[in-house]
Nucleic acid binder design. Structure first.
Length: 830
RNA sequence: GCCCGGGUGGCGAAAUUGGCAGACGCACGGGACUUAAAAUCCCGAGGCCCGCGAGGGCCGUGCGGGUUCGAUUCCCGCCCCGGGCACCA
């Protein structure tokens, strides 16, 4: 082989084909330590985008490294293949969602193969196939049995573009997570919910047991769960005669200490009490208030507070005072009890509301002990302090008062301590076709009846008209709709909503361990071997959606006795975004970089490697075509050097006996090589800063090019050159698997380089014979000493002071102090 | 408003434990090769100033302080950018 051009398009597909046909990692001996590397499974939208490439390049480099380090690695891939785009495409192209989806999967899998990602495709999981989704149904039934799935009517988020309901997690800032220009509407619907709130405390507490998750993600989850301690207090409603009736309105408050300052009760416009107590025109006004809350999402400002008096009164259980019952648009039905006490003196929102409507504003906490209240508050005082005008509790520090007053409420039977969560139950019903059918029927006689396990899967019917109108398409599929009640055999109607696709992704990574298991979602022994996931890699956008649902599912499985651990992922890595011209890539902006085009122009290796080189993987970076060209150039240099010296290198990549250096040039070359080895190994083990690994590799290759003379003269012999190339190619293999394999094969290496052992670091060879020590004068660099690395402090000090430049600068003066850090630096202070 | 990140040459970045700021790459400039260009190979390069030159000096990691022999790194205060949450009582 003579020196020639680097043309990845010629050899990359050849290896890709071979790896697709005979998976090289299949024959690993058992009994090694396991390592589970997982990348978030993609939605098969049609083509790979650069975000995928980054995600998989990181995971693949790690998986390949761990293989070479001797681990038994599980590195699977699958398809999150239910979901709305398939239905939209079906309408647009007049095809079936399945046809469209499976075609996309086939194409994207070809792209994955072309990139050389080392997945175990024998374990491929496709969530839209009945073999997978029947287990969604199985889990649903288990949840139902454990009272973790239930049906209720409630106010839900509705995206008019998706024409379906969204979970709270799928609404951000009042807009749909898929349609950022579409405000979410509120609708009242019957829905299936999963009782994630039953696990709120565990989900919160166990975040402390995930030290290897990014702090950012844990914080986001903590905020999302939103635990807050307070109390519930009942306010008796007064009847027409002004006496407390049988009814009471319950509020949640974290500031029971301020209850003597309450000016009103405020109810959410959707509060159920209102239905029976408001006149028709008031009901309409309440509905208008509810709608008012949805407006104004575009502006950063909060919507104006509105409300009105219902005409009813309640009694403050502590002070006995009469309080008007108001409706207020800023009170949320979904949090606490949907009712609050308005304490304008000590809550900013209540202050704003009460001032607007002329309700009394009183101060019942003062910042200093014994202080008098302000004559007129011009803002709420929300800090800690001492109670005043609060009956027997006056004079107490407010924190103590919270404890005492909660106990008092409990003793007198009108309240108790209560923990509230922002987190709400997970609504999983979707009024769409392309999803997992929810396995229940509605029987005229028996009501809601679960489909028995033996009748699973409830198959999605094929003959369905998809219109995108917001009706569950299954409701029109008569063959599907009609069912016999499993309990009484009588006529029954199937549930026509399908499940949120986040159900699939909550447990798919268990399925990889035993993808063909037919009697259970997974084989327990296989899961016990592989789980928890050692390293999960994906985008930050799933910080509170997928990543909280999967934790929830795992905890339920633990309670069911299916698994012995309660957190599914030991280490989480969230990669940064790739932007272009400073903006997120999107079709509408026309700034998308197509990976297929990059492969065509620069090859898979250069594309993958550029993505790793451009920035540390957790950081965002802006795409630069010339950057990929740079990586292509680097790989070309590797290729040309190897082919130019092919005759010398052939058969010498992995000599059984490690060659010893004979000349200074050989010593220097081996030293640089082993220093690089140490650097790349440490980057993998500790920091994942592949950009510096690759920079180091470039450095070494730059040295090679300066050695041509030394190679020609024999100063660098074939044995050492072969050793260096052998180490280098193995270091390159996790980043540029095609080129590493091509050169490995061309130069006489046996079999798959990916199955080679990671080279062994020799500290002896890496050791420097001489190092440069900077000498500072008053902290400023003035000279450099070249010394043996182990030179002791006394000698360093002596040589520094003898240095002509330092001596000249001292000019006979005695230094006040000489700082000597052996092996690092000398600082002479005068 | 609250909570996270981040701010270093023309650009992406590096500096691993408080110890030579700017490795590596991109873009750029010069040279070699070529009739020429491209490709390739070699060399140069933070800014300002002094010197014909070898070389030397000063400044420099968002801004202002502090700790230290020494700060991109630690502490305090501020500014700017990005992201998340946002009436959660």
């Amino acid at each position: 082989m003579s020196e020639n051009e680097y043309r990845p398009q010629e050899f990359e597909p050849r290896w890709a084909r071979r790896w697709a046909e005979q998976w090289p990692f299949a024959a690993l001996p058992a009994g090694r330590a396991k390592y589970y590397v997982l990348e978030m499974l993609p939605y098969p939208s049609g083509t790979l985008h650069m975000g995928h490439v980054r995600n998989y390049a990181i995971g693949d480099a790690l998986a390949r490294f761990m293989w070479m380090r001797g681990y038994d690695v599980l590195h699977p891939m699958g398809w999150d293949s239910f979901g709305l785009p398939a239905e939209n495409a079906a309408i647009k192209n007049n095809t079936h969602p399945r046809t469209w989806t499976l075609a996309n999967i086939a194409h994207m899998k070809q792209q994955d193969l072309r990139f050389g990602f080392a997945y175990d495709w024998r374990r491929e999981v496709t969530t839209c196939l009945p073999e997978f989704y029947r287990w969604n149904q199985w889990f649903f039934l288990r949840f139902l049995e454990r009272d973790l799935a239930y049906r209720k009517k409630g106010w839900v988020n509705w995206c008019p573009k998706c024409a379906t309901v969204l979970a709270n997690e799928q609404v951000a800032g009042g807009v749909c997570w898929r349609h950022e220009d579409t405000p979410v509407e509120r609708r009242e619907l019957e829905q299936w919910y999963l009782r994630i709130t039953a696990y709120a405390d565990q989900l919160l507490r166990d975040l402390d047991r995930l030290p290897e998750w990014p702090e950012r993600v844990r914080t986001m989850q903590r905020n999302w769960i939103g635990r807050s301690e307070g109390a519930e207090v009942d306010f008796a409603v007064l009847d027409a005669a002004g006496r407390p009736g049988g009814e009471a309105l319950r509020v949640f408050t974290t500031r029971i200490d301020t209850i003597f300052g309450a000016s009103a009760l405020l109810l959410a416009p959707e509060h159920p009490w209102l239905a029976a107590h408001l006149a028709p025109e008031q009901q309409a006004a309440a509905r208008a208030l509810a709608a008012d809350r949805n407006g104004g999402f575009d502006s950063a400002a909060e919507p104006e507070k509105h409300g009105f008096f219902t005409g009813h009164w309640a009694r403050n259980p502590f002070s006995g005072e009469k309080l008007p019952i108001w409706i207020a648009n800023f009170v949320l039905m979904g949090y606490g009890t949907g009712a609050v006490m308005a304490v304008p003196g000590h809550d900013e929102r209540d202050f704003e509301f009460c001032r607007k409507y002329g309700l009394p504003i009183r101060q019942v906490v003062v910042p200093e002990q014994g202080a008098a209240p302000a004559a007129a508050l011009d803002a709420a005082f929300t800090g800690d302090g001492w109670l005043i005008d609060s009956g027997e509790f006056s004079g107490l520090p407010n924190r103590d008062a919270i404890v005492r007053m909660t106990a008092e409420a409990e003793r007198r039977g009108f309240g108790q301590a209560k923990v509230s969560y922002r987190l709400q139950d997970w609504g999983i019903s979707r009024q769409r076709y392309w999803g997992t059918p929810i396995p229940v029927v509605y029987c005229e006689r028996c009501g809601i009846v679960p489909v028995p396990d033996a009748q699973l899967p409830v198959l999605l019917p094929d003959d369905v008209r998809i219109t995108g109108t917001g009706q569950s398409p299954l409701a029109e599929a008569t063959s599907f709709l009609r069912a016999a009640c499993p309990r009484c055999g009588g006529p029954a109607r199937r549930e026509t909503d399908t499940m949120d696709t986040f159900v699939d992704s909550s447990w798919y990574f268990f399925r990889y361990t035993s993808p063909r298991e037919e009697s259970a979602p997974f084989d327990r022994a296989a899961v016990a071997r592989w789980l928890p996931v050692d390293q999960y890699i994906g985008g930050i956008e799933h910080a509170i959606l997928h990543l909280i649902y999967m934790r929830f599912f795992t905890k339920v499985m633990r309670d069911m006795g299916m698994v012995a651990f309660d957190e599914p992922v030991t280490r989480l890595f969230t990669q940064g975004m790739i932007t272009r011209s400073g903006a997120k890539m999107s079709k509408s902006k026309g700034n998308v970089v197509d990976p297929a085009e990059m492969i065509e122009r620069y090859g898979a290796d250069a594309t993958r490697m550029y993505v790793l080189f451009a920035a540390p993987p957790e950081k965002d970076f802006d795409w630069n075509d010339q950057g990929v060209e740079g990586l292509h150039r680097f790989l070309s240099r590797v290729f040309r050097f190897a082919t130019r010296h092919a005759e010398r290198l052939r058969g010498r990549l992995a000599a059984p006996e490690r060659p010893r250096p004979r000349t200074a040039a050989e010593t220097a070359l081996l030293r640089a090589t082993h220093q690089l080895l140490a650097r790349v190994t440490r980057d993998f083990e500790e920091r994942w800063h592949f950009n510096t690994s690759i920079a180091g590799a470039m450095d070494l290759v730059n040295r090679w090019y300066l050695l041509d003379g030394a190679i020609a003269s024999g100063e660098v012999g074939a044995a050492v050159l072969g050793e260096v190339a052998g180490i280098f190619l193995r270091l390159l293999a996790p980043f540029a698997p095609f080129l590493a394999q091509e050169l490995w094969s061309e130069l006489g290496g046996a079999g798959e380089i990916a199955l080679e052992r990671w080279p062994e670091f020799d500290p002896e060879l890496a050791r420097e014979e001489e190092i440069e020590i900077p000498v500072q004068l008053n902290g400023k660099l003035r000279a450099r000493l070249v010394v043996p690395p182990a030179l002791d402090s006394g000698e360093l000090r002596r040589r520094a002071l003898e240095d002509p430049k330092i001596a000249a600068a001292l000019n006979g003066r005695t230094p006040r102090q000489v700082i000597v850090v052996a092996g690092k630096l000398v600082n002479v202070v005068v």
